[in-house]
Amino acid sequence: MTDVRTNTLARLRGGIERIEAHADTARLDRVALGHAEADATLQGGLVRGTLHEVFALETRQVGAATGFVAGIAQRLTAGRPLLWIRQDFVAREAGALAMSGLAELGLDPRRIVLVQAADAEMALRVGADALACDALGAVVLDLWGEVRQFDLVASRKYTLAAQTSGVSCVMLRTSALPAISTAETRWVVQAARSPPSAPWEAWGAPILDTQLIRNRHGQTGRWIMEWKCDECLFRETAHSQPVAAAPADRPHQAPALLELRGTRRGQRSA
């Protein structure tokens, strides 16, 4: 081979390596959730500087989903400011974010800036702006229902912006069905019952039934997690509850919508 050809080949190889740099799981900046099994499945934890989606399939699950988002946002920001962008309709339908409640979960209300967007379009535009600002730790988008504007192209743009700036983006989607996107992980969250205890014992710590339905770099799964407000970590619950075992060999592509509808029905009867 001539020198020119070798050079071209080397350059192309270098290019491919650069393109695949993000696929190199070892180099990703991961933050552990605290739940051992979930962290094992996630190969160390949630990836910073990318897009995560959390779904509350119905409005009444919004409390649990918000708790989960608050938890992972706390883990992802690591003390940097958090921008919470909410659509006005969510506040009307599912309640406005209460700072005293957030503070009790262990988040620092001094580091939270809230943006009240009139509609989903405004929220998405502000979100795209915010993701370019590397002073932030994370951006949360609190959206209602199906959002037509957040298609594959938009989510790809979000992922790229998050990767460039290193700011994590968490989408909290209430009353929406999961759809195809470029998210790193996708969760469906609902409330789980407090473990049985004596009446005088404290109860009501956030206990969440979390289902990981997409993981770009690994398996999916379903776990009951408890958020420990003092440690700011997710933990296994003291009293384990039976959970329908998730299939271990599930493909990590986004499942089709029809399948999901089935899952949803299954959850309700569970």
């Binding site: 919004v62 409390g63 918000t66 708790g67 608050a70 599912a94 309640g95 406005a96 974010l97 209460a98 005293s100 409640g101 957030l102 503070a103 009790e104 979960l105 262990g106 404290a202 109860w203 009501g204 710590a205 956030p206 420990k228 407000c229 003092d230």
Partner: peptide, 13 residues
């Protein structure tokens, strides 16, 4: 913060 379990809601109407 006083207690481990939250006494105030996370979302308020």
């Amino acid at each position: 913060r006083e207690d481990d379990t939250p006494l105030r809601p996370l979302r308020m109407f």
